[in-house]
C-alpha cells in the first residue's frame, strides 16, 4: 500500500491505496463520490472526466498514486451549498442536454474546462473539443447548445 495525500473538491484527503488503483476508483470507491462515472473503462467515453490541477483528464486513465499532492475537482463540487446548480449544469437542464444522464458528469466537467479556456465558443470547434466524450442517447445537438449557453452564463456569472 502506498500513502497518498491530495485535495479533492477543496478538502485534504490522506489515505493508502494499492499502486494499481485508478484515480476513478479512488474517487468512487474510496471517497464515495459516485457522481464521476465509469462508462467504458477503455479510455474512450469520457464519462469519468474530472479536473486534475485545473485540467480535464479521464480519471480511468490516471493512477491515483500519480496524483500525490495534486488537486482534483469532481462534479460534486459544482452545485452550491443549497443545491443551486452551477450555470453549466443549469444550461444542460434548460437545453435538454441530457437524457439518461450517464455521460453528463463528464460532459459538464469537460464543458467547464472548455469554457474557461476560450473567450468565444464556435460550435464547430466545440464539436471538435468534445471528441473525447461520448453520448449515446441525447445526441450532441442539445449538448452543444447547452455548452454555448452555459459558457455565456459563466461569463455573466
Amino acid at each position: 500500500m502506498i500513502p497518498l495525500s491530495l485535495t479533492v473538491n477543496g478538502k485534504k484527503v490522506s489515505l493508502e491505496v494499492e499502486a494499481r488503483t485508478l484515480l476513478v476508483d479512488l474517487i468512487r470507491s474510496h471517497l464515495r463520490l459516485t457522481g464521476t462515472h465509469i462508462g467504458c473503462d477503455t479510455s474512450q467515453c469520457g464519462a469519468c472526466v474530472v479536473h486534475l490541477n485545473g485540467r480535464s483528464v479521464k480519471s480511468c486513465s490516471v493512477l491515483a498514486v500519480a496524483c500525490d499532492g495534486d488537486e482534483i475537482t469532481t462534479i460534486e463540487a459544482l452545485a452550491g451549498l443549497n443545491g443551486e446548480l452551477h450555470p453549466m449544469q443549469q444550461a444542460f437542464a434548460d437545453c435538454h442536454g441530457l437524457q439518461c444522464g450517464y455521460c453528463t458528469p463528464g460532459m459538464v466537467m469537460t464543458a467547464i474546462s472548455i469554457a474557461k479556456e476560450r473567450e468565444h465558443l464556435d460550435p464547430s470547434e466545440l464539436r471538435e473539443e468534445l471528441h473525447g466524450n461520448l453520448c449515446r442517447c441525447t445526441g450532441y445537438q442539445n449538448i452543444v447548445k447547452a455548452i454555448v449557453a452555459g459558457a455565456e452564463a459563466m461569463k455573466q456569472g
Partner: peptide, 9 residues
C-alpha cells in the same frame, strides 16, 4: 492528437 483529455496528459 487524440482528444483534449488525452492531450492534457
Amino acid at each position: 492528437i487524440a482528444d483534449r483529455h488525452v492531450r492534457n496528459r
